[in-house]
Design a protein around this nucleic acid. Structure first.
Length: 583
RNA sequence: CGGGACGUAGCGUAGCUUGGUAGCGCGUCUGAAUGGGGUUCAGAAGGUCGUGAGUUCAAAUCUCACCGUCCCGACCA
């Protein structure tokens, strides 16, 4: 492709609405342009990189035995009613009306469509297993689109759905996808981390996320240095807090004492009270299905909402407002407690974190503004409805299995694999007959890759001060030929054309920078758009019978003009081998 | 949806406090010189100051409403 015949609008300055580096580079390198918040037009360079990723995904899915299909974006609402997600996923669903005022939804994902297909088409165990996938557009009414392609209202996703006869068979399908994902991200030049994950609204009981470590990521990952354990912080567990919970019972009954104006853990930990945070019981009030519940944590712990949601199974869930708290407990946040004697309504469910088990000599709110209770023995004084792990793991705590200290870092979620079970197949009648003629629901799995997000994650991970540094497999072009004199009969241009035709004939994707620009402009642009190999052709080196090969981010290599094409091909072969995962 | 910031030419911005001629840099166009890391000089085009209302002799500037963008939180690939 000749530079002047395509459209690569590079920018010297960064548009003000881009915050993170990859978003700035997407715009500066002319890969995308914003239509409006959360909606982007892909320009030629961005589209080429996107297609590269799609093709890697497609190759690996095919290799793993998945079957490509294409499902509609526009979907009838009744299948969403049938699965129950018309209400549980209501926030992300776009609704559209046709001429007859009939309602449709824009698909945010395709479990309903594929399960309906399976319900009609799959009848026998002889047809299983099957794994269908597609690469296509998803629509989600995001609460807050963010960071360019990272969180958009419309984005490209690869989604796959497996159908199996049993749990064990489903695990085999799951494992195949897990392995395919590992290969996909390696081929994209990404260092991805597979982490244990919470399953969220999609449901199911077993799941991994593929994470790209990045400071700008929206997720937090907890892991051991050896790699033996890695989990989303929403799911992560540990051996518990580093400081032990006090358990020595003072033998004294709870005693109320005045704490005027003290409404935070820190204030109570400070003089004159000096009650260390881990000696306090933190009491939180949430509304689950509009009913108040109490959650107890150690004062120095943070609630992990994902764990709480998983435990309560509530679809509607939120922290209570100060007014709602007062209505339920008769005191304001900062003076709350769960000591049975202080509760107005003894039936209030109390969920307590395991770190509090056996806790004694604790201090907590008295459910009376300006007062706390000390000498609280949780077993004696608090009626706990359910004990479970509700706390957020903190870095430095020890891994449950290996005892290694846990670390924490931020990451971008680019893929997610779920074992779904029979949640959808039961609701939508995706049943099959086994060898003995008995009917069973298919055991499903679902597997997503955010393709547009992966594109941006590559940029976020592969860049330097001059711009993007594309890994060869996803680069929009492999080679950029940069003649410094583009006059039709100039030796540099003649050689550039020759090399361009030669390499193109050999199947290399070449960008020929035939713009009549000064060398500095061309070099800066080539660096910005990040083409892996630049071939510089100018009079100085031509005089020596040479051209320059300049790998992006590497050092200059002078080669004889006659060997240029062969050298380029050799470099590309060697480079592409670096991204080949083991078979 | 809650909290915050912002909206002036294609992009980046000044001007707003204290109302009175809309300015700069980049980019674009023309011409010349230059030609190995965003070159220089000369000239030119390009602006409903987000939209609407209000205050005023007069509004980019003050007031209100609306729209939009970005950031933090809840959601997620």
């Amino acid at each position: 492709m000749r530079w002047t015949q395509t459209f690569i609008p590079t920018l010297k300055e960064t548009p003000a609405d881009a915050e993170i580096l990859s978003h700035k580079l997407l715009l500066r390198a002319g890969l995308v342009r914003k239509l409006t918040g959360g909606l982007y037009t892909f320009l030629p360079l961005g589209l080429r990189a996107l297609r590269k990723i799609e093709n890697i995904v497609r190759e690996e899915m095919d290799r793993a035995g998945a079957i490509e299909v294409a499902m509609p974006c526009l979907q009838p609402p009744d299948i969403w009613q049938q699965s129950g997600r018309y209400t549980t996923a209501a926030e992300v669903l776009y609704h559209v009306l046709d001429r007859a005022r009939k309602e449709w939804v824009l698909g945010p994902t395709h479990e309903e469509v594929i399960t309906q297909l399976a319900a009609f088409e799959i009848n026998s165990y002889r047809q299983l297993p099957k794994n269908f996938y597609q690469i296509g557009v998803k629509f989600r009414d995001e609460i807050r689109p963010r960071f360019g392609l990272m969180r958009a209202k419309e984005f490209i996703m690869k989604d796959a759905y497996s159908f199996d006869v049993s749990d064990e068979a489903a695990m085999v399908s799951y494992r195949k996808m897990y392995d395919a994902y590992t290969r996909i991200f390696a081929r994209c030049g990404l260092r991805a981390l597979a982490v244990e994950a919470d399953t969220g609204v999609i449901g199911g009981n077993y799941s991994h996320e593929f994470m790209i470590p990045a400071e700008t990521g929206e997720n937090e990952v907890v892991y051991t240095e050896s790699g033996s354990y890695a989990a989303n912080v929403e799911k992560a567990t540990s051996r518990g807090p580093l400081t032990p919970t006090p358990t020595n019972d003072t033998g004294t009954a709870p005693e109320k004492f005045p704490t005027p104006g003290v409404v935070t853990i820190e204030a109570l930990a400070a003089p004159p009270f000096n009650v260390a945070a881990h000696q306090q019981i933190k009491t939180l009030v949430y509304l689950a299905e509009a009913k108040p519940i109490l959650i107890l944590l150690r004062g120095d712990d943070q609630l992990n909402e994902a764990k709480l949601i998983a435990r309560t199974g509530a679809a509607q869930f939120r922290p209570a407002t100060a007014d709602e708290v007062f209505a339920a407990l008769g005191a304001h946040p900062g003076s709350l407690g769960a000591v049975a004697a202080t509760l107005r309504s003894p039936g209030l469910p109390v969920y307590a974190d395991l770190a509090l088990q056996g806790a004694a000599g604790m201090t907590t709110g008295a459910n009376e503004d300006g007062f706390h209770l000390r000498h609280v023995n949780i077993a004696r004084d608090i009626a706990v409805t359910q004990w479970a792990d509700f706390r957020t793991v903190q870095p430095g705590e020890l891994d449950v299995a290996s005892g290694q200290p846990l670390k924490s870092r931020r990451a971008i979620e680019v893929g997610h694999v779920f074992k779904l079970g029979t949640k959808y197949s039961e609701k939508m009648n995706a049943l099959f007959l086994d060898e003995s003629g008995r009917q069973h629901p298919c055991v499903m799995g679902c597997y997503g890759i955010g393709v547009t997000r992966t594109l941006q994650a590559v940029i976020e991970q592969c860049n330097d001060k001059d711009g993007i540094v594309w890994p060869l497999p996803v680069a929009p072009f492999s080679v950029c030929i940069t003649p410094l004199n583009v006059a039709p009969n100039a030796p540099a241009m003649t050689l550039a054309e020759e090399l361009y035709h030669h390499l193109t004939r050999d199947g290399v994707e070449v960008l020929l920078d035939n713009r009549d620009e000064r060398p500095g402009v061309k070099f800066k642009d080539a660096d910005l758009i990040g083409i892996p190999l630049r071939v510089g052709i100018g009079e100085k080196s031509l005089a020596k019978g040479e051209v320059e090969l300049k790998p992006r981010g590497g050092s200059l290599l002078a080669v004889k003009t006659g060997e240029a094409a062969a050298q380029v091909l050799a470099w590309l072969r060697a480079e592409s081998a670096r991204f080949q995962p083991p078979a």
